[in-house]
């Protein structure tokens, strides 16, 4: 498994842990209020920590174990995998934006809006990282 693939696995685990905690802990009963919006914004602080700590630890660990691979630039296959993953992630991003427009029109504001956008971003990231891992596993 290449250095970049390992980092993708760490990112996937970090995403699931950080945003899994976020969406399970969010006070949904106040979502449609200004307080719900502030709650979402404040919860981003622990989310960032939960996501970044394993990312930094994982990257450091794998970079120490395989320093040669860590210093390599992306080659053409990895660049293609990168681009294809980003392309696939565009679709959930568009769907999420439309969902947010629909929610706003129907009176779901504040925390709902922030959370739909956050869920959109998380879904797009999960699809991107998941697709890239799939392409890495498949060889291309």
């Amino acid at each position: 498994m290449s250095f970049r693939e390992k980092i993708h696995w760490v990112a996937l685990a970090g995403l699931v842990a950080a945003f899994g905690w976020y969406f399970l802990s969010y006070p949904w009963e106040i979502a449609n209020s200004r307080a719900g919006m502030y709650a979402a914004v404040w919860m981003l602080l622990p989310v960032t920590i939960i996501f970044l700590v394993p990312m930094i630890a994982g990257t450091t660990y794998f970079a120490i174990r395989t320093p040669k691979e860590a210093n390599l630039q992306e080659d053409e296959r990895e660049k293609t995998i990168h681009l294809r993953g980003t392309h696939v992630a565009y679709y959930p991003l568009v769907l999420g934006i439309w969902a947010n427009i629909f929610a706003l029109i129907n009176g779901l504001n504040y925390g709902w809006s922030v959370n739909i956008l956050m869920a959109t971003l998380v879904a797009a990231e999960l699809v991107r990282v998941g697709a890239q891992l799939y392409f890495y596993r498949r060889g291309y």
Partner: peptide
């Protein structure tokens, strides 16, 4: 060649068409 070991493996196995 300037690619990773995994890319050489993918080319060898016919999974990836190199440039």
């Amino acid at each position: 060649v300037g690619v990773t070991r995994q890319t050489i493996a993918a080319i060898e196995q016919g999974k990836y068409s190199p440039s």
